[in-house]
Amino acid sequence: MRVVVDLTRCQGYAQCVFLAPDVFQLHGEEALLYDPAVPEDQYERVRQAAAACPVQAILVGEEVSAGVR
């Protein structure tokens, strides 16, 4: 599972940081850093974070692989 945050939309509310601190961290006062490759034991937390983000800036999903030739 991969995660990408639309950082133009993110306003640093940090809900994601509380819900999945192993994946999302604040760097300085409001710059969000995150680990794009989500470890399996974090899937549930990251899904919760995506749902909780007040500006819906977090997208989780699979990366392209099928059909690549």
């Binding site: 991969r2 990408v4 850093l33 680990d35 794009p36 490759a37 997208l59 999903g61 990366e63 392209v64």
Partner: peptide
């Protein structure tokens, strides 16, 4: 903090 090959974009 992350591998250069770990930033694959998730599909919508």
């Amino acid at each position: 903090n992350a591998s250069a090959y770990s930033t694959g974009l998730p599909m919508r």
